[in-house]
Nucleic acid binder design. Structure first.
Length: 434
RNA sequence: GCCCCGGUAGUGUAGUGGCCUAUCAUCCGAGCCUGUCGAGCUCGGGACUCGGGUUCAAAUCCCGGCUGGGGCGCCA
C-alpha cells in the first residue's frame, strides 16, 4: 500500500463516501458472524468499522477474523455510507496491511467488561493509555499546560529551565533524593525555589517553569507522588503578595476555562466543568481559625492546618459559595524560611480548593540579613545556601511567587481520586517501573 | 517515620479448616451463525504470592519474606 493513513476515523465525512481511503489503528474488536464480519478499529480520534463478506473477499476475511485484538493494521478500502455502522460509514476493504501483531492474551483488556486494579493498569500503562477515558485525562492535561504558557507569556513571563541536579538540599523540611555526581554528592531538586529566586537578581523580572519536583518522603497516599510536576512562578518589583495572588488566580481561572473547551474528552469522562467565581475569596489565617473554632474544631495558633482542618474549612467555604479561596497571613512558623513577614505574620498564602491545597506562595525576603537570620532561626546551615545568598548581595528587587502542583490541580478539575491517574508514569513509594 | 488492610487463571472475583478434582464473569482456543455494535449459542483451556509451622486434613489458622493498597504526619 502506498500510504498507511489518509484520515482519522472521525475526520471521514460525506465527501469521502464512495471513495477509497486509508485508515489505520488498533483492532479493538472482531465480530465474526459467519459469512460476514465486523472489525472495529480504534485510532487517536475514535473508532470505525470495517465490514467484510466472506464470499466477496475470502482472503481478506480470513486475515481479519484470525488476527489478534490490539494488533495494528492499515486498511485501504471503499468508504460506504451506512446507517447501521458507527459514524455513519463503513469501510469495505480492498487491501489490508498488518503492521504489528499483538500477543495473546493481553495483560490488560482495553475494552473488556472487567475492571482492572490501578496497579495492573500502571504495570501495563501503554495499554491502559489506549483507553479513551485514560487518554482524555492527558489530552486535558495538555490543554491546561497550553493555557499556562499562553497566559503567563501574555503577562510577560519568560519560561526558564533550572537544574534538577543540585549540590545542596534546597529548602530544608522535606527529604531529598541523594545521588552520586562523579566524585561529589548531589541531590535531586525538591523544587526550583532557590533558582527562580536567584533569577530575580538578573533583570528577567518575571519567570516561570514547568518544573519537576522530587521528594523522598515515604508517604503512601492517593495524593502524593515522589516525582511530580508544577507550575513555578516568580515575579519581581512587587509591593505585596497580593500581586502574586492576582496572577495565580487568573492563571487558575484560565486553566479551568481552557479545560472546559475539551468537550469530547469531558464527555468521555462524564464530567462537567463549572467555572469558579472570580476573583477568589481571601481569608486570613486568623479568620480561618475563628471559623473553625465556631465549628468546634480547635487548633493552636501558629500551627499549619492539618488535613481534617483543611477539609472542614473547605466545607465552610463551599457553603459560602467559594470553591477556591486563599488562606493568607499565615504565622511565620508555618512557612518556609524565605517567606517575607511582618512581625509574627508571614506574607505567605495557600490556594485551596475544596479543602485541598493546590498552591502555595508568598512575597519573599529580599534583604540578605533578614534572610540569613531566618535561615539560622529555622536551624538550617548557612553553608548550603552560599550561591543563593550571593544573589541577594548585589541588588535584588522585592519579589514573590508560587508553586502549583499540576497533578493535584487535575485531581480537583476532573474529580480524580488517585493522583497516580494524573501522571503518565507515576513514581510513588514503591513504583519505579515503568 | 507511624498505623491499618490485602495477595486465588491473562484480567476481575467467589470461597474463613474436610462439601475444592476451587465459583462466576471476562479472556484465550475450536465450532455454528449475512448486519454485529456489551453480538449470541455449543465445547474446551487456564489460578490458590513464596518459605516454614500447626493439624488426620490448609486457598482457609500461625510466623517470616516478597509484594500491593489505604490513612496519618509532611507537603504540591
Amino acid at each position: 500500500m502506498d500510504r498507511l493513513r489518509s484520515h482519522y476515523s472521525i475526520e471521514v465525512n460525506e465527501e469521502d463516501y464512495e471513495k477509497n481511503i486509508f485508515l489505520a489503528g488498533w483492532i479493538e474488536d472482531i465480530r465474526n458472524i459467519g459469512s460476514i464480519a465486523f472489525i472495529i478499529i480504534r485510532d487517536r480520534m475514535g473508532t470505525f468499522q470495517i465490514t467484510v463478506l466472506k464470499k466477496n473477499d475470502p482472503d481478506i476475511f480470513e486475515k481479519l477474523v484470525t488476527i489478534s485484538r490490539e494488533s495494528v493494521i492499515s486498511v485501504y478500502g471503499l468508504c460506504k455510507r451506512s446507517d447501521k455502522a458507527r459514524n455513519g460509514y463503513e469501510i469495505i476493504p480492498k487491501d489490508i496491511e498488518i503492521l504489528s501483531i499483538a500477543k495473546t492474551p493481553l495483560p490488560l483488556g482495553v475494552v473488556d467488561k472487567v475492571e482492572s486494579d490501578l496497579d495492573t493498569r500502571l504495570d501495563n500503562r501503554f495499554i491502559d493509555l489506549r483507553k479513551k477515558e485514560i487518554q482524555a485525562i492527558f489530552k486535558i492535561r495538555n490543554s491546561i499546560i497550553q493555557a499556562v504558557h499562553e497566559y503567563l507569556r501574555s503577562e510577560k513571563f519568560v519560561e526558564v529551565h533550572t537544574p534538577n541536579i543540585i549540590a545542596s538540599s534546597s529548602e530544608g523540611g522535606t527529604d531529598v533524593f541523594k545521588l552520586k555526581y562523579f566524585e561529589k554528592e548531589a541531590f535531586l531538586a525538591q523544587s526550583p525555589q532557590l533558582y527562580k529566586q536567584s533569577l530575580m537578581a538578573t533583570g528577567l523580572d518575571r519567570v516561570y517553569e514547568i518544573a519537576w519536583y522530587f521528594r523522598a518522603e515515604e508517604h503512601n497516599t492517593s495524593r502524593h507522588l515522589n516525582e511530580s510536576t508544577a507550575v513555578d512562578v516568580e515575579m519581581a518589583f512587587i509591593n505585596s503578595e497580593e500581586e502574586v495572588m492576582k496572577i495565580l488566580e487568573k492563571l487558575v481561572y484560565k486553566m479551568w476555562e481552557k479545560a472546559k473547551e475539551n468537550k469530547i474528552e469531558l464527555e468521555v469522562l462524564n464530567k462537567e466543568i463549572h467555572l469558579p467565581s472570580f476573583p477568589f475569596k481571601r481569608i486570613t489565617y486568623d479568620n480561618a481559625i475563628d471559623e473553625l473554632n465556631n465549628e468546634n474544631i480547635n487548633i493552636k495558633w501558629g500551627e499549619d492546618l492539618g488535613s481534617d482542618e483543611e477539609k472542614a474549612l473547605g466545607k465552610i467555604m463551599k457553603k459560602e459559595g467559594h470553591d477556591f479561596y486563599f488562606i493568607t497571613k499565615y504565622p511565620i512558623e508555618a512557612k518556609p524560611f524565605y517567606t517575607m513577614y511582618d512581625n509574627k505574620y508571614s506574607r505567605g498564602f495557600d490556594l485551596e480548593c475544596n479543602g485541598v491545597e493546590l498552591a502555595s506562595g508568598s512575597q519573599r525576603i529580599h534583604d540578605v540579613e533578614m534572610l540569613e537570620k531566618r535561615i539560622k532561626d529555622c536551624n538550617l546551615s548557612l553553608k548550603g545556601f552560599d550561591f543563593y545568598l550571593k544573589a541577594f548581595r548585589y541588588g535584588i528587587p522585592p519579589h514573590g511567587g508560587f508553586g502549583f502542583g499540576i497533578e493535584r490541580f487535575l485531581m480537583e478539575l476532573l474529580d480524580i481520586k488517585n493522583i497516580r491517574e494524573c501522571i503518565l508514569f507515576p513514581r510513588d513509594r514503591t513504583r519505579l517501573v515503568p
